[in-house]
Write a protein that binds this DNA or RNA. Sequence first.
DNA 1: AACGTACCCTGCCGGC
DNA 2: TGCCGGCAGGGTACGT
Length: 245
Amino acid sequence: MPELPEVEILVRQLRAQLRGRKITGIEVRDPKLRLPDSLAGRRIVAVTRRAKHIIIALDDGRYLLVHLRMTGWFEFAPPKRYRLALHAGEVSAYFEDDRRLGEARVVSGEELARVTGKLGAEPLARGFRLKPFTTPRPVKVALLDQTLLAGVGNIYASESLWRARIDPRRPARRLDAGELKRLERAIVAALRKAVAHGLRIFEVQRFAVYDRAEEPCRRCGSRIRRIVQAQRSTYFCPRCQSRRR
DNA sequence: AACGTACCCTGCCGGC
DNA sequence: TGCCGGCAGGGTACGT
């Protein structure tokens, strides 16, 4: 489920529930996850996010670093199945993750820096600028590269390109300055809107193009197309997002 | 260095 | 109802 907006929403919940609390116990239900017992007794001093990484800072200088990947999430009431539970006094956070692709590990500040250091610009940070691409790969594929731009996933890549009226197949480095600026604004707008809507955007609003193949474009009525790029679905409007311009 | 592909896992959905 | 193939919002380890 989670791309940057969903992770941001979850981080706010985790922060509200956990910050300042002492971890009273951990429960690892999935042997694939390895967490040190020394987690218990530590106090959670901050809960933050970088791209799609959840960073839970502990009072001993270490961090619990979580990546949700495809199906990970935290609940505060015990779900049917979960991989990990963090108990913190009266509050518990349960890491559920059907596909078990997510990660949770304890890292030093140095390791954390190594992970975040590889990531590109944070689109919701102040002063965010989309750096011109140098890659010849399709712009949709480039948007998913976390080293170029951090936090955009498959849904918001399609959504942003639709907003910016750019064909997802265009070689990224061919975008001119005007297109880049439009794309930059489109990314920020798409992500901010999603954060503002909360998780309801998945239920109620749906997306402009994502998962809407064969349905009419909201802007021009043309049929939305689905193509596959780098083994992932891309959705776009062939009329609004024309290849040449 | 930069690209494509395979892979990690499981659940769900549509078609038969 | 049951089985099966295909698909899924992420990222990394490889090979070329």
